[in-house]
């Protein structure tokens, strides 16, 4: 209130110095927002518009002029076998990894929410898969899944479970399994740490009261803890869905989409088409197929945040 009164006093006294103009909130706000908005406009908004334009033309690296061809790129992709396979791969990869990450993440968070020695060290160590560069940890997985020298195969063979090792990255179903394992390994710590932060806000007295009333550990978890951390779970799920559906690095390093396109995701297919084959327009159209899912997640998050900020 006082600051506003001061502003009126300034407004009634022209002419204004630069300093005084900047003290008006409406002007100052846009001056302060300018650098950030400039970068976001040039490198997100403008590319997004460019992407829409590219997708409705036939531009490639080799052609100089682009021709408007309407929705031809989008329709053409729908009929392509590789694209259909890629969409199936992306959905399977996202659905399976997100479920595993959620279940394992909750389990790890509950485990870490107990008191034990060296807790801080354990928490720091368990987050490592999430914080190191994915492209680099994927190299470790590439070696772990090597057809000949895979240590998993060494264990399988030496324990007598199988006579021959698994061709992890060379056979469709196993290649999908391999990238799913690597993704779950990388993403579970994020789920665990975020859910743990949610668990720590749960009132212990509430749990003790329920315990006095005769509720079992399982009942307390299912009826009290889980409903209370539901907001956190929802947000983690939405974030992870967006990140997983748009994943690139793990697949690029481990399989390049192979064998026979069985592990291509939308991101890696768009890269192959746009960058390696130089078909910019087609690649842009493939990327844009992520957009509907993205919109659903964003709208869900915005609605949720609006609701939680009004209540």
């Amino acid at each position: 209130m006082r600051a506003e009164a001061r502003e009126h006093a300034i407004a009634a006294r022209p002419p204004l110095s630069i300093g005084e103009v900047l003290d008006r909130q409406g002007v100052l706000a846009y001056v302060l927002l300018f650098p950030g908005l400039l970068i976001l406009t040039v490198f997100i908004a403008y590319p997004f518009v460019t992407s829409l334009w590219l997708a409705v033309t036939d531009q490639s690296v080799s052609t100089s002029g682009a021709r408007f061809i309407g929705l031809e790129n989008f329709i053409g992709e729908l009929g392509s076998q590789i694209f259909q396979q890629t969409v199936r791969n992306t959905l399977v990869y996202t659905a399976v990894t997100v479920v595993f990450k959620l279940v394992l993440g909750i389990a790890l968070a509950v485990l870490m929410n107990q008191s034990f020695r060296l807790k801080n060290l354990a928490r720091a160590a368990l987050l490592l898969p999430w914080i190191v560069p994915t492209a680099l940890s994927a190299i470790a997985w590439l070696w772990l899944f090597d057809a000949t020298f895979s240590v998993f195969n060494w264990l399988l063979v030496h324990s007598g479970l199988t006579t021959r090792g698994i061709n992890w990255l060379g056979e469709g179903g196993w290649a999908m399994t391999a990238i799913i394992i690597a993704n779950v390994w990388r993403g579970t710590p994020f789920f665990a740490i975020t859910i743990l932060a949610g668990l720590q806000t749960v009132d212990r007295e509430l749990l003790e009261a329920a315990s006095v009333d005769g509720a079992s550990t399982w009942q307390r978890f299912w009826r009290i803890t889980l409903p209370l951390v539901r907001p956190v779970l929802l947000i983690v799920l939405l974030f992870s869905t967006i990140w997983t559906i748009s994943d690139f690095q793990l697949v690029y390093v481990l399989t390049r989409g192979g064998p026979a396109n069985s592990t291509h995701l939308l991101g890696t297919l768009a890269y192959d088409v746009a960058v390696r084959a130089g078909q910019l327009s087609e690649g842009a159209a493939i990327s844009l197929y992520m957009f509907p899912v993205l919109i659903v997640c964003v709208v869900a998050l915005l609605l949720y945040l609006r609701r939680s900020s009004t209540t």
Binding site: F48, S51, I242, W243, S246, Y271, L280, S287
Partner: peptide, 23 residues
Amino acid sequence: IGAAIFVTYLVPQTLLFVPLLEV
């Protein structure tokens, strides 16, 4: 503006790398 900045947080790199190459 606040909502727009939040939305850009959710835009994945794989959605924009093709046009960004052009930009």
